[in-house]
Amino acid sequence: MASVELKDVRKSYGSTEAVKGVSIAIPDKELCVLVGPSGCGKSTLLRMIAGLEEITAGEVRFDGQVVNAIGPTERDIAMVFQNYALYPHMNVFDNMAYGLRNRGTPKDEIKRRVDEAAKRLELSHLLDRTPRQLSGGQRQRVAMGRAIVREPKVFLFDEPLSNLDAKLRGQMRVEIKSLQRALGVTSVYVTHDQLEAMTLADILVVMNGGLVEQAGRPLDIYEKPASTFVASFIGAPPMNLLKLSDLSVTAPAGAETLGFRPEDAVIASATSGLRLEARIEAVEPVGAESFLHGTTPGGRVILRAPGRSQVEVGERVAVNVPADKLHFFDAQGKRVEGQGVSVQI
């Protein structure tokens, strides 16, 4: 167990910079999720924390101690790989015991720990099988088991659920969270799935192009995205972003873009807040709610309506967003604080 700190960490491959100066502080026992689109440098950053990738510049500290020069073997971390990286020639027991054996753990201690982990992950009946004889979900659990038997300082996960089907992914997400809570091991979790990120994270770090766009508590980020990138990356469907120049709105100085979450819009005319007229182009009923796709003078929007929507395709509806649910961004896409209201039809 340890706190993890990154200080202006950089990584270059030749002339291309994959990570361009990232600073994050993860307190002990917390789960930090790195989220961002593919190629933004998440894996590279994680691998630098693991010691698998040399750190071009900056510092990685565990409990205040710089670990830059310490290799993966001595760094006392455990990692779950996207493809699980199970040893194909060893059975489940040996896969989990390998790390303990390498560290000279006594035999009965190994057995006790592996059995305990296997029980926790419901793998007890599979200990004799080789990875090839397991389903994807079971392999994933073995990879988890291999990480937890070690009782390391830090857990690292690189998209551990991306090879599972949607249902299993949801299950494992909950399980990973409760496991991490129970063991109280500081963790760094990489994913490109914003739902996974939101639900798992104690600290959420949104990355883009090798840089941190925003870091903080997931709901804080959801409620106050620092940029249009974060606004459109976190939340599904994403925040609606409209060009202010096409709307007559009183906006804070410098604001160029207006944003609101699909669920914050109400289909009704009101006397305050933002009022828009939208022409509905498509209706997606998903059961508990419906998504309405529409066009407004400022651009396309998605609206969330509870239950089954009565709105028909082609209909024009009045949309209202309360003033305190509006977000503003400047020309660079950075958040602009302040509220605005509008009267617009």
């Binding site: 698998l52 993966p72 790989f81 990286a85 291999r146």
Partner: peptide
């Protein structure tokens, strides 16, 4: 041999 296997072994404390 997948590189991740070697990396996993390194993390698992094997020199």
């Amino acid at each position: 041999i997948p590189k991740s296997l070697i990396e996993a072994a390194a993390i698992d404390g094997a020199r």
